[in-house]
């Protein structure tokens, strides 16, 4: 399988994610993260997981990004605050050390494992099979996910709704 597009996608996604996480401007960070989510969708396309790629675009680029941007705009006092105040230096160093250690362990483990990986074409698993699996074997899981989503969204509405004044009936 051709790895050149994979490396390109990976580098773009990692770069946008890193810049987003280090950024000063919240809106720029959010938009860069959207680019990185789109990069992940491109990876899914490369891995022939069409349905998941489009679901990723629909949910992350269309949905989650909107929620994030609305939250950014709803939780600021003035434009000056959009430029986030400097985070503490020692905290950043500690986080970098922890993250770097985890990354080192993971990379070491991956590189020392002989992974051949079969390259059989997954053509047999198309959208139709996915639908049948979801509605048949995994119907219970689908129902539970539906309930989780409903409860979570109701909870989010309750949390975000303004509280009534104290003397309200």
């Amino acid at each position: 399988m051709n790895t050149a597009p994979l490396i390109l996608i990976a580098l773009t996604t990692l770069a946008t994610a890193a810049v987003a996480m280090a950024g000063r401007n919240l809106i720029h960070s959010a938009l860069l993260l959207v680019a990185s989510w789109a990069g992940i969708a491109a990876f899914y396309l490369w891995a022939a997981a069409e349905f998941v790629a489009f679901a990723q675009i629909l949910i992350y680029v269309g949905g989650v990004s909107m929620v994030v941007l609305f939250a950014v705009l709803l939780t600021r006092n003035s434009r000056a605050e959009l430029a986030i105040s400097t985070d503490s230096f020692s905290r950043a160093i500690a986080a970098l050390l922890a993250g770097g250690a985890v990354f080192g362990i993971l990379v070491g483990a991956i590189l020392r494992t002989p992974l051949t990986g079969s390259t059989r074409s997954p053509a047999a698993f198309n959208v139709r099979t996915l639908g049948l699996e979801l509605m048949g074997t995994h119907a219970a899981a689908l129902l539970i996910i539906g309930i989780i989503l409903t409860v979570a969204l109701l909870g989010a509405v309750v949390l975000a709704a303004p509280e009534p004044p104290e003397d309200a009936p």
């Binding site: 996604t13 996480m21 959010a30 992940i40 939780t75 503490s88 905290r91 993971l106 990379v107 990986g117």
Partner: peptide
């Protein structure tokens, strides 16, 4: 193998997310 690249990619992404979540003070980030 390509699988190695995929795993390296995902661990890089995971660690960027981890560093961001640990180091930033802004709740949204």
């Amino acid at each position: 193998s390509p699988l190695h690249f995929c795993l390296l990619f995902s661990s890089g992404l995971f660690c960027i997310g981890l560093i961001g979540a640990l180091s930033r003070r802004n709740a949204i980030l």
